[in-house]
Simulated assay, not measured.
Amino acid sequence: MAHAEESAIDVIVADLLHWFRAHGCDPDSALDRAQMHLEAELPEAV
C-alpha cells in the first residue's frame, strides 16, 4: 500500500502541480480547493 501511495503522490506532483505552476496558478490553493471538494463529497458517498 505504501508503494501505491508514493506512486499516486508522484503522479500528483509530476503532473498536476507542475501544470498549475507552469500556467501561473498557485499549487497550494489548488490543493486546498481539491481538499474542500473531497470533504464536501465524502458525506454523500457514505
Rank of each mutant, 00 (worst) to 15 (best):
D28Y: 09
R33N: 03
W19I: 04
W19D: 06
A2Q: 08
E41V: 08
A4Q: 15
E41P: 00
P43N: 01
V46G: 05
A22H: 12
L31R: 09
D10M: 10
M36S: 10
V46P: 02
A2W: 00
L38A: 04
A2T: 03
G24T: 08
E41K: 14
R33E: 05
L17Y: 01
D32P: 00
D10H: 09
E41A: 13
E6Q: 14
A22W: 05
A34N: 01
M36Y: 09
D15Y: 09
H37Q: 08
Q35G: 10
F20H: 14
D26F: 02
L42A: 08
W19M: 03
I12Q: 08
V46N: 03
R33T: 10
P43S: 01
F20K: 13
C25K: 15
D26G: 04
S7G: 12
E6H: 12
P27D: 09
A40V: 02
A14D: 05
A22Q: 14
D15A: 09
M1E: 11
G24S: 04
A22F: 08
E5F: 15
E39I: 01
L42S: 03
S29R: 05
D10C: 07
A40R: 08
G24Y: 03
R21G: 03
R33K: 12
H3F: 12
V13W: 00
L38P: 03
A34F: 08
R21T: 09
H37K: 06
C25D: 15
L17Q: 00
H37L: 10
L31V: 12
V13P: 00
I12Y: 00
I9V: 15
A22Y: 06
M36C: 07
H18W: 07
L38F: 12
